[in-house]
Amino acid sequence: MRPFRYERPDDPLAAVALLADDPTATFLGGGTNLVDLMKLGVARPDVVVDVARLTGRAVETLPEGGVRIGAAMPNSDLAADPVIRHRYPVLSQALLAGASGQLRNLATTAGNLLQRTRCVYFQDVTTPCNKREPGSGCSAVDGWTRHHAVLGASQHCVATHPSDMAVAMAALDAVVQVQGARGPRRIPVVELHRLPGDEPQRDTSLEHGDLITSVDLPDLPVTARSHYAKVRDRASYAFALVSVAAVLDVHDGIVGHVHIALGGVAHKPWRATIAEDMLRGGPATTDAFRAAAVAELTRARPLPDNAFKVPLARNVLVSVLGHLTSSAGAGR
């Protein structure tokens, strides 16, 4: 491992300032991804700024009805939080579908959002990768693509974002609070992660030195239910082949509020706006769910090893919406 300087500043502004001074400096949360990448030589920071004690580690209720999640809150605690379990079960379920108990104990909210892709070529410094080394080429696009994107990819990068939590947050219209060198600002989670385009080295819209301080979840309609389903290559401890987070409110058989996000299919949590638009105000039937899923996925451009993700995403989406419509999905 490359020698680096370890800093543990006392407040967020000091942390932001430390990064501003050094383009290779990086924040350290739980370290469950960054430390691995440092061992592999993928991340080579000169300065590591530990922020795991600088921001909140709890869930607060906001006056306007939503909640604020501390950026340093461990995934385990967030998943177990009574308010999250009661009001946002999709988020608790997504967290528990990710990683392992040990990793969730360490991993933080902000760190989970900012984890890097697990594309095997990105993690192997002996193979070209535009995300790791811009301009070197994408090894994945003509390589092993089982876990890669079917939506929104580019010729420069076909990686997927690995987080489960972020998919639930995208469906919940979560908003990230950021402290930057020029002051604080708010970024919706759906705009935090980006598609690769011709700059796959940029996972997010954050600037260097931006520190996520919290994540806000808006209030949901009282009658809305939410659910997360994940399909992976083994029963636990694997990244999603496809996952679906959905929030659904049905009255008299008609869809009201509906938010859907897909995981495992794109460089970012994929908000299924086409499907949402088709469903909103229409009948909550299996046929309608299926038609909406198919419409959303018409833009899919599968690679040789991952064509199965298209019918799989369709089926999981239909299943999750069906679950939320049925009595089994009751209890929010």
Partner: peptide, 12 residues
């Protein structure tokens, strides 16, 4: 290329 225990799945 899947040369670690995240990529090479063993039953959990």
């Amino acid at each position: 290329v899947n040369h670690d225990l995240a990529g090479y799945h063993i039953a959990t």
